[in-house]
């Protein structure tokens, strides 16, 4: 008998559902289209530059619009170094603050403090930039810089003249800007660790500090890592505040006191004055690099998170 035992039931789908399905599928497809479209647009825009300089664009360090010589290395260097300073400072402070808020602070302190920290994330970056330019940069020039140089001047990192504006100042501003993100997400992650685990540790006679560092933080590490990556993502792409305090000089210098440039700040700074087609195209290529780097950083971080999680599943 070749008659099937079961007959497929013809499903009735109302036209309204069909329409609704089209809308939601379309909505989610939009994201894929956007990210691919953005990539294509960036490649097309940077085509003249890609053709003129080839891959050497990435490791050439000359940035001379007058002579039409363009290399991205100083900006890549500036972006990486400032982001690294930022994530170093922000992750330490942010994680400590999150532990304090989640496990140590009494409620009447934790609630208003959390609120303030979240408000900090809402401050427009241009305001951070102003503060950095008028308060932090002079402070670095007159106090922070000389102190660091006195203590660590024997390393090339803290040698050389201190201008006030430069890599270190930009890194500190970025750290301030991403610390609310790192703190708020880390705090939520830490707070989500079951009370059971804390009590198990306390019941063994551990102190609160031992409980936080040996039980709670290890259990929360994946989420905390995610929080730091989110902060890093913001630091890589942050534009205006950095542009205001980094000094805007396309140079590579070992000293953190030296002025520098980032991918985002050079685009913001020079787009309006870019006159030749290849100049504009070089700026767009910088955007392409930033786009790719951001996506790679996020992807690598996520893969790391998955691998950690997988081994513990």
């Amino acid at each position: 008998m070749d008659e099937p035992a079961f007959r497929r039931i013809a499903r009735f789908v109302s036209p309204v559902d069909r329409g609704f399905a089209a809308v939601v599928y379309g909505g989610s497809a939009l994201f894929a289209v956007l990210i691919v479209g953005l990539f294509i647009e960036l490649v097309l825009g940077s085509w003249p530059s890609l053709r003129a300089f080839g891959p050497s664009f990435i490791w050439k360090s000359a940035w001379d619009p007058v002579a039409s010589k363009f290399g991205a290395l100083p900006m890549i260097y500036g972006t990486v170094v400032t982001s690294f300073i930022a994530i170093l400072l922000a992750s330490f402070v942010g994680i400590m603050a999150a532990v304090f808020l989640a496990d140590f602070a009494p409620r009447w302190i934790a609630a208003p403090l959390s609120f303030l920290i979240e408000l900090l994330a809402a401050v427009p970056s241009v305001v951070y930039g102003l503060w950095g330019l008028f308060v932090l940069a002079p402070l670095v020039r007159t106090t922070i810089g000389p102190v660091l140089q006195h203590l660590l001047g024997w390393t090339p990192l803290f040698a050389g003249p201190i201008y006030g504006v430069g890599l270190l100042t930009a890194g500190i501003i970025l750290a301030l800007m991403i610390v609310p993100t790192v703190t708020a997400i880390s705090r939520d992650v830490i707070a989500a660790i079951p009370r059971d685990l804390r009590e198990a540790s306390m019941a063994l006679g551990s102190t609160k500090w031992e409980t936080a560092t040996r039980v709670v933080l290890p259990a929360a590490r994946v989420g905390i890592f995610g929080a730091c990556v989110l902060g890093l993502g913001r630091a890589l792409g942050e534009t205006i505040a950095v542009t205001m305090v980094i000094g805007n000089r396309p140079e590579i210098s070992a000293s953190l006191f030296a002025p520098s440039y980032t991918l985002a700040s050079v685009i913001a700074n020079e787009f309006t004055e870019a006159t030749s087609a290849v100049y504009i195209s070089a700026l767009i290529e910088l955007g392409l690099i930033l786009f790719v780097v951001s996506i790679v950083v996020n992807a690598v971080a996520r893969l790391m998170i998955w691998s950690v999680r997988g081994s513990r599943a």
Partner: peptide
């Protein structure tokens, strides 16, 4: 802390430390 080391506790739901090995859990105290 000293009291809790002498009066141990077992909880309603099993709560081993998830990031420690079985060995390190057993000697966590």
């Amino acid at each position: 802390m000293a009291i809790r080391r002498r009066i141990g506790m077992v909880f309603q739901r099993p709560n081993p430390f998830p990031t420690l090995s079985i060995l390190d859990n057993a000697v966590a105290a």
